[in-house]
């Protein structure tokens, strides 16, 4: 075997037993430190780490759930607002339609009234004109009769025939009728 220094240098003394895993002299040491390690990790985990992580996860779950609920609520609110808006819009539209129809009806009535008035006026004017035309016509006929009678009496007088006025009238009337 080599000297102590050489052993420390290349670890020949330890590896001379073959596999270091089967070097039973180191087992108590490993087992001791393993048990210490596991106990420490177990205590740290079960006392501090795991409750804390569980708490954080639960808090997050709660936050997510409440956030989802809030979001749902807000969504509901938005839907309600939209519905109200739609309703208001429909109402306004109906109102506008009604007002337009009303205005239209009013105007129509006015227009109708105006037309009627105009018609009436036209009719009255037409009637008046007719009356005057009749009058003028009648006047003209009178004038013609007068002229005819005077002309006839003049012609008869010029002929030297004595005829009374009644006979001339009758003759004129007979002529004018014809």
């Amino acid at each position: 075997m080599a000297t102590e220094a050489a052993d420390a240098a290349n670890g020949a003394a330890e590896s001379s037993v073959g596999m270091p895993q089967l070097d039973f002299s180191t087992f108590p040491n490993q087992v001791f430190w393993l048990v210490v390690t596991l106990v420490v990790i177990y205590l740290v985990l079960s006392r501090v780490a795991l409750p804390r992580i569980a708490e954080v996860l639960a808090a997050r779950q709660g936050a997510i759930t409440s956030d989802i609920a809030t979001a749902e609520e807000l969504k509901q609110k938005a839907a309600n607002a939209e519905e109200a808006y739609e309703r208001a819009l429909a109402e306004a539209r109906a109102e506008a339609g009604r007002i337009a129809a009303e205005a239209k009806a009013e105007m129509q009535a006015e227009v109708d009234a105006a037309i009627e008035r105009a018609d009436a006026e036209i009719a009255s004017r037409a009637a008046e004109s007719e009356a005057r035309i009749d009058e003028i016509r009648k006047g003209a006929a009178e004038a013609v009769r007068d002229v005819a009678r005077s002309a006839a009496s003049d012609v008869v007088a010029a002929l030297g025939v004595k005829v009374d006025g009644a006979a001339i009238d009758a003759a004129v009337a007979a002529q004018m009728k014809g």
Binding site: G11, E14, M19, P20, Q30
Partner: peptide
């Protein structure tokens, strides 16, 4: 297999039950 050798971290005495070895170091 030399990488698996258990040896004391300080000095090179025998490996007792509570000796601070490389096992201790890496477990810590």
């Amino acid at each position: 297999m030399d990488q698996f050798i258990v040896k004391p971290l300080f000095g090179d005495g025998p490996v007792g039950i509570v000796t601070i070895t490389n096992v201790t170091f890496w477990m810590a």
